[in-house]
Amino acid sequence: MKIVKSRPDLCTGCRACMIACSKVLYKVEDPDKSAIRIKERSGAESGYDIFVCNHCGKCISICSVEAIYKAKNGAVRIDAEKCVGCYMCVGFCPEQAMFVHKDINEPIKCIACGACVRACPTGAIYFEEQD
């Protein structure tokens, strides 16, 4: 499958990826509802960190209601019907790449659609084939 990878050094912090993502996932332009997050570094270091799911699937075994599964295309997906909104997976994500919003029951998570890649003007995020 193709997963989203990043080159943070190229990121300008425009957050076009977050807008594009929230549009695909929730049909709104709201960076707080995006599954990819750009965070400005604090302290001495300048630049941005990019948090996005690598579909490692560690969250699958964390979930106690079997709401997280590997889809046919290899993407790790959440079944919103089954999800009880407990956010254990969010706290246990080694990439810190799952997010929450008070109006959304399930965690906000990348579906590997590539919308963010297409929206990025600098090539700071890109698609890469992975086994």
């Binding site: 009880v84 956010y87 969010v90």
Partner: peptide, 19 residues
């Protein structure tokens, strides 16, 4: 059952503590 079944007054407070 969902994460909102209690209809909490301020869900963000709960989420932040939980995370």
């Amino acid at each position: 059952v969902t994460g909102d079944s209690n209809n909490p007054a301020d869900k963000e407070k709960i989420i932040n503590a939980a995370l």
